[in-house]
Write a protein that binds this DNA or RNA. Structure first.
Lengths: 242, 242
DNA sequence: ACCTGAACACCGTTCAAGT
DNA sequence: ACCTGAACACCGTTCAAGT
């Protein structure tokens, strides 16, 4: 497809312009303890590696994330990465965790419907900031503190609003499943391209799809995402009041 | 991690035991026309290739699907595959389409809630039959007839039940998003492993997660999937009757 | 302490050649 | 008409070696 002959890694390095150390928050390189460093100072750090990996995926897609390409971007040889991450799988775990940490905590809300919208918007916002990386990472178990905080906030609001333990978890799962599915569909083009209508026409079947082709072709919006959430909230409210 | 030194392809071939031609339905090799075959008879066919690919993924995971491994399983050299599929990406498109064709049509239902459950069960059933292949394929645009039929049936039922055009499409999207998200979460272990509770305990935060750890650890079931669907149906019914 | 060179066993894909 | 051999430009990962 992309028949470009040469795509020199050096160019990536320049273009990506990874702010190698600029991305680091203070204290990232060394643990909180002021332990004395000896020997050669480290050129690499885990957060710098993960940040560069996310930038690489966002720019060129998941398949561009290669140990070798990542190393080039960081101005280092591929093998040096293995000092800091166990392998490619561990790299992806780190990427997932660093992505989740971008979600800023909202705190528990007294109104559970606000909490639902807050949770869903956080996830969707992350996906919109990093569509490519999100797909890579959406299916990895989230066992980091930053991934758990939004869940904690949502569950706390549901419990506080009077949902039983069982119903709180059930509600969480419905909301999380809808949000994940919606966001992934959005990234994939919502499974309906403009030419689905023409396929339906060619096939001479699917009269309803043909009749609804204008509506189906409409790109999902902020509004339609929230509307779907309201449908679910309405169903949950009925259970709560029952 | 898996430090096994040698994993000879020949062994895969034996172990996988792909029923190379047994998987073929009659008429798969040649188009319906009784066109005369000349030259060397084909050892390969697109359906046989896709079936073997699905079997390989189901057995050994998405990363085991390699042009070379697939060829070995089919008793052929890797380059022979390029006679039948344009490349690996086209192979994955074919795998996606062949998977979707496993869904057996249910026909439109007079009761729209039956149609909702039917659609969702079809998708979930496919995911349970091919959990590994499903993840690989869930995000590819579905533009084949067999992928469109379940959508047509659901939309037709919704329209027939009195949903407006806009509301029918909106309802479809909520249902599809929930189903996709639920099913992918299920495959990924529903993002909550048993040790999330212990992580929450170690972190000394997340009191609600800790309090709900038993409920959160419960594996999703047929029943809980349908219960979530009922929540959504209840929300949709309110809109319909409004 | 941290990074590198060389090597190994893989990939997808091409092209000209075999039958 | 269909399949193959040899080759190219990649992968992830190891290990012993450099500074």
């Amino acid at each position: 497809m992309n028949g470009s002959t040469a795509h020199p890694a050096a160019r990536i390095s320049t273009a990506a312009g990874i702010p190698a150390s600029a991305n680091l928050r203070k204290g990232d390189v060394t643990p909180a303890t002021g332990r004395r460093r000896r020997g050669r100072p480290a050129k690499l750090s885990r957060p710098a590696i993960f940040a560069a990996a996310i930038a690489l995926i966002d720019r060129d897609g998941p398949s561009a994330l290669t140990m070798r390409a990542l190393a080039t971007v960081l101005g280092v040889e591929a093998m040096s990465l293995y000092r800091h991450v166990a392998g490619k799988d561990a790299l992806l775990d780190g990427v997932a965790e660093q992505l989740m940490s971008e979600i800023e905590p909202r705190g528990a809300s007294a109104d559970w419907t606000v909490a639902v919208h807050g949770f869903a918007s956080s996830v969707r916002g992350l996906a919109r900031n990093h569509p490519q990386a999100f797909t890579l990472v959406a299916l990895r178990a989230l066992d980091s503190a930053s991934a758990l905080q939004p869940v904690e906030d949502l569950l706390a609001s549901l419990r506080g609003a009077g949902f039983t333990r069982q119903r709180s978890v059930a509600a969480y799962r419905v909301i999380a499943a809808y949000t994940l599915g919606y966001v992934l569909s959005e990234i994939a083009g919502f499974t309906f391209s403009e030419d689905v209508a023409s396929l339906a026409r060619r096939a001479g079947r699917f009269p309803t799809i043909r009749a609804l082709s204008r509506q189906l072709a409409q790109a999902p919006t902020n509004t339609s995402f929230r509307a779907g959430l309201e449908t679910i909230i309405s169903g949950l409210r009925a259970e709560l009041e029952h």
